[in-house]
């Protein structure tokens, strides 16, 4: 098994009410990535997530109340930046991502071509087959929107498996993001960061519920579209301020 080299890598798992799966996910990460540090951001879970993490060997950052996925990721980014990590891997707590695939993702990231690498479910086929209609429309919409405003399409804007290089830590903690999806991708691309996609496969969700309810299915596209456009504006202003 290739080592992660001299890079310090932090694997961060944001978790909200994932008591059923979290322990297994942590153990699989520790088994597959023994050279990486592990951080779980317990985002105000009301179930036994915190108890299940006791003695797991992971560092646990516990939000006192639920702040949402975007803020949980932001907490992990802040932690990684403060502790001098070179890269941050984000992974879902529902067990859909296979930690074994992180190794190949890290190897690709080590090529030095990317500042942020997305584990993509759709980069190979470039189609959203097998996805429910509502989600498929959303994915098409955001992929097209990213292509229009940032100049290059990203096929999996909602993937939770990402590798983030330390150079991207500061911009990700200085502006606001909803879910670290299309709006964060566009913001970073507009700032000149190199974002790539690498093929992965995901397992079906076995337990718990998706973080998207029917209400958020209406609000999410509106909010994210607005933030995508504002992300471009903000990035241009930031570049102008810097120059």
């Amino acid at each position: 098994m290739p080592a992660a080299g001299s890079h310090r890598t932090l694997v961060a798992i944001p978790a909200y009410n994932e008591a059923v799966t979290i322990r297994d996910v942590v153990e699989r990460v520790r088994a597959n990535l023994p050279d990486c540090d592990l951080l779980v951001v317990n985002d105000g879970s009301r179930d036994d997530t915190a108890a299940r993490l006791a003695g797991s060997g992971a560092t646990v950052v516990g939000h006192l109340c639920n702040l949402g996925y975007g803020r949980a990721i932001q907490t992990a980014v802040v932690y990684a930046a403060r502790h001098g990590y070179d890269r941050l891997v984000t992974l879902d707590a529902d067990g859909q991502h296979d930690p074994a695939q992180v190794r190949t993702l890290l190897n690709e990231f080590d090529s030095g071509r990317w500042d942020l690498l997305i584990g993509s479910r759709y980069i190979v086929t470039k189609q959203y087959t097998g996805v429910p209609l509502g989600r498929r429309v959303g994915m098409q919409l955001f992929s097209t929107l990213v292509g229009l405003v940032a100049g290059r399409r990203v096929y999996d804007t909602t993937s939770g498996l990402k590798v983030i290089g330390r150079q991207a830590f500061v911009p990700l903690t200085t502006w606001q993001f909803i879910d670290f999806h299309a709006e964060a991708i566009v913001y970073l691309m507009s700032l000149g960061y190199r974002i790539g996609e690498f093929p992965i496969t995901v397992a079906e969700r076995q337990h718990g519920q998706s973080m998207y309810s029917w209400l958020s299915a209406v609000k999410y596209p509106l909010k994210t579209s607005l933030m995508v456009v504002l992300g471009v504006v903000e990035a241009r202003l930031a570049r102008r301020r810097a120059s």
Partner: peptide
């Protein structure tokens, strides 16, 4: 403000614990 406080508190608790 509440979010920043919550995040900071969580980070400090984790650092203290480690």
């Amino acid at each position: 403000r509440v979010m920043r406080l919550t995040q900071e508190l969580a980070l400090r608790n984790a650092e203290e614990q480690s």
